[in-house]
Every structure is written in C-alpha cells, then in structure tokens.
C-alpha cells in the first residue's frame, strides 16, 4: 500500500507529502526518540505526538514512509519547513495513536 492510499482511506491531513508514492511496509508508534531510532524501520508509518523538527531528523534517519502526528497536535513551523526541504511526508490525524494504530492494523498494515 502506498502513503497516498493511507491518506485517502484514513482522511489524514496532509502537512507535507513530497513523496506520496512511498510504499508502506509497517508501523511504529512512539514518542521517545531513542526508542524510535532503534525500532522504527524503513517504510513504517510512525505515529507520534511529537511535532517538532527533531522528528523530521529521526524520520529521515530511520527511513519511515511517513510521520503521522496524532490527536491533531500542533506541528512546529520549523518542522514543516524541514520536512519539505528534506522530503519527509508529514501527516496529521485527529485520532489517538491507539485508535489510528487499530485502524491501520485492520487495513492490513502490520
């Protein structure tokens, strides 16, 4: 499944989507960056409450397919700028990480 399809199916808000054609392989949810660094893998959807620019750095390093900021939390201007610049897909959902993770799992993203 592509990032584009996930956006449509879950009605995610697109903050930046420079690479909507990226393939989604799995998912990871977490807000402690050292944990995410070790556990998130290439092609994952990363669900987090963190909306600052260090998230973009971690997304880039782990190679996740997209970052999804949950619970409609605020995303910092610098994070958006950096995501655009570095080509990181930055999405947002009003659902909680728990709810969103459940939906993604149901869609077959495991």
């Amino acid at each position: 499944m592509k990032v584009r399809e996930v956006i449509e199916k879950l009605e995610l808000e697109v903050i930046t989507a420079t690479h909507p054609g990226k393939e989604v392989r799995g998912g990871y949810s977490g807000d402690l960056l050292s944990n995410v660094m070790a556990k998130a893998g290439k092609g994952d959807l990363w669900l987090t409450i963190q909306g600052h620019q260090n998230v973009v750095a971690v997304a880039l390093l782990t190679g996740v397919a997209a970052v999804i900021i949950v619970e409609n939390l605020e995303v910092e201007k610098e994070a958006i700028q950096k995501a655009e610049e570095k080509g990181v897909n930055l999405l947002r959902s009003k659902l909680s990480a728990y709810q969103l993770g459940g939906r993604l799992y149901q869609m077959g993203i495991r």
Partner: peptide, 16 residues
Amino acid sequence: EMGFGAGLGLVNIKNY
C-alpha cells in the same frame, strides 16, 4: 518534552 531523555542513547550506541 521533545522526546529525548529516555536514557537509551548509550544503550543504542552499545547495541548497534
């Protein structure tokens, strides 16, 4: 608050 300080950095460094 930014998601640092889990005390896992050096653990990651050692593990990887």
